[in-house]
């Protein structure tokens, strides 16, 4: 006779869990990963493997050391490694990428208590660490198609320091110098569509982020067309699309409220443009996202929705 089993609620489970989300983001990254391998060949493949392996290994070792349940099969560390590789310059020595991936998981995530407790996006934090540690290597860019001896300036650096605008078609395809995953706009946009269709990310942060950059650069371009590049070039070049689609939307380090997400995206866009136009660096996406990550708890608190029927406290 079959026993009657009784469970307490909930009885219906949603299939959406960490693993599902991470897998979705990884699937969305496939076009960008493919484009990076197409343009940078072996350099891209080895950086991706080393970085993803380093991140997963660090997660495994740390969780074993701390006597916690090993959760590397939720792919979050793997994804951190892949994202880190995508924001690194192709000619970076592999051991530096490995160091970065160890830093991302160990000091970017696990010291705060693991997945869900970190303040900053681990991949970007590791990039900031590498930037401060090996500034020369992190700003040495090579041209696509694996000619690793030829260094070249990124489109943003060209636009900022020499006022040369890269052809839009190259920016869309990705046939320009830059970090592994940031060059091909079309591959990143395919990822965006996929993520939005699967409802893995919210449209508000990328919309606010990219929109702010577009508006800001339209104004500056109209004021001084010779000095500041056009909004199209600003949106397509640098790490903006990669950052806005895959980094700023990190569910752990971005606000949870609707209003908060708009504020977060606009803040990222403003800081990015401030750095691009008046800062010393050609690119500001990384620092803008990290700075807004730090503000996320405050934004969450400030944008808390009013409960129905409750009068204003003050």
């Amino acid at each position: 006779m079959k026993k009657l089993s009784i469970n307490i609620s909930p009885h219906i489970f949603s299939p959406v869990d960490t693993r599902y989300m991470m897998k979705g983001v990884f699937l969305a990254l496939i076009p960008a990963v493919g484009a990076s391998i197409f343009f940078f060949r072996m350099q891209a493949i080895s950086l991706l493997i080393v970085s993803a392996f380093g991140a997963t290994l660090t997660e495994l070792v740390l969780q074993k050391l701390r006597g916690r349940k090993v959760r590397i099969n939720d792919y979050s560390a793997f994804l951190t490694g892949v994202l880190l590789a995508l924001v690194l310059p192709p000619s970076l020595p592999l051991w530096m990428a490995f160091l970065g991936s160890v830093f991302a998981v160990a000091l970017g995530k696990e010291v705060f208590g693991g997945l869900g407790c970190n303040i900053f996006n681990p991949a970007l934090l590791a990039r900031a660490f590498l930037m401060a540690t090996f500034p020369v290597h992190l700003t040495t860019w090579s041209n696509p198609v694996g000619v690793d001896t030829v260094t070249a300036a990124t489109p943003l650096a060209l636009a900022k320091f020499e006022h040369i605008i890269a052809p839009y078609l190259n920016l869309i395809e990705g046939n320009v110098s830059g970090s592994l995953g940031e060059t091909s706009a079309i591959a990143l946009l395919i990822g965006l569509v996929f993520l939005l269709r699967k409802k893995i990310i919210d449209h508000r942060i990328p919309a606010a982020f990219i929109g702010t950059v577009a508006v800001f650069s339209t104004i500056t371009h109209l004021v001084a067309p010779g000095t500041f590049s056009s909004p199209i070039a600003n949106v397509l070049s640098g790490g903006l699309l990669l950052g806005a689609i895959f980094m700023a939307t990190d569910p752990v380090t971005s606000p949870v409220t609707v209003k908060g997400r708009w504020i977060f995206g606009i803040g990222c866009g403003l800081i990015t443009m401030l750095i691009r136009i008046w800062g010393g660096l050609p690119e500001g996406v990384m620092y803008s996202i990290l700075l807004m990550n730090a503000l996320t708890p405050l934004i969450n608190r400030a944008s808390r929705p009013k409960r129905f029927g409750v009068a204003n406290a003050r």
Partner: peptide, 15 residues
């Protein structure tokens, strides 16, 4: 050996 420049900066001190 490549010097880790961050280590001689304040951030390196905190880390």
């Amino acid at each position: 050996f490549t010097n880790w420049i961050v280590m001689v900066m304040p951030a390196g001190a905190f880390i």
